[in-house]
Amino acid sequence: MKKEKLIITIFLLLLVAPIFLSEFRLNLLGKYVSFGIAALAIDLLWGYTGILSLGHAVFFGLGGYCMGAYIKLQTETLPDFMMWCGMTELPWFWKPFQYFWFALPMAIILPIFISLLIGIPTFRVGIKGVYFTILTQALALIFVTFFIGQQLYTGGTNGITNLQSILGFSLSDTKVMQVIYLITVVILIISFLFCRFLVKSNLGRTLIAIRDSENRLKFLGYNPMTYKLFVFAVSAGLAGLAGALFVPQVGIISPSLMGILPSVEMAIWVAVGGRGNLKGAIIGAIVVNFAKSFFSETFPEIWLYFFGLLFVLVVLLFPKGIMGIINNMVNKLKIIKKNRIIHAKADC
């Protein structure tokens, strides 16, 4: 319980944030909370299993597109970009997305499906490490080109824009936005508990074993492929869910959100927060994004330098991220306390 003080405080702060934050700031925070869920997904895969995917924005984006398609069809029978291209009828694969009960599960199932499609052939033949990372990165590039190329069905470079209402509620209503924000926070908490359950279970130990010594695990008779596939799929589904929560808060989904740059950014959130630490992932996502919006608002000219430097410095100076720094400080405090007690006893 004592260890969890930090994360409980953060969750409580997030839950009461609507009371003291302006509408604009709350909306930003809501975005970051959904990023936090994506960061959990990356941490599960990278921090615990040692597999770095730089294509996770694809899963995030797919979830977003599913939700975006649903929201779009609430107000328009035929999306505007299809009308501009001269389509008269909705394509068959768009049709089921007018139902919420279809769109939301698809936001999770579709990323899982893609993750298996890429995971099975690569893990099966033992492609790992950076080779896997490079392949996922190529996946991100391909999805972006594909979505831009299929303008008729995806809205091209602009993506799906002008999203207005969800389940009959208007997305411009402050009250509705607050509810969506709270739902996002609750789902973040549930995802956190779920991930924590996973990593604390026997399965989680196996994942860590894969990270630390995959070969030894093989010699012990385990088949790492099953575990890796499982964690990759869970991670993809979680990222898709994050994307689905992101879209109603932002009102747009476009290919630029599923490319390589956002994928690398996701990894950076986790690296800043502290790899192999679920709390760290959430903290990293929120801190990095606040820093990003602060710097890009205050120093629009040079903020990319800051951002680039952040990548370099985190890796070079703080390989364990924010959680590493916090843990270090806590340990030092403990030692000081201990010394004091010893001194006090000696004085008696």
Binding site: L52, V264, L304, G308, L309, L316
Partner: peptide, 26 residues
């Protein structure tokens, strides 16, 4: 000034050099 400190930490080099690439582009 950078790569030398990162030998054998392949994942970290990806992130660090990515940062360098952002800086050089800017």
């Amino acid at each position: 000034f950078l790569i030398r400190f990162l030998y054998g930490r392949t994942y970290e080099t990806i992130l660090a050099t990515w940062g360098v690439s952002l800086i050089l582009q800017q």
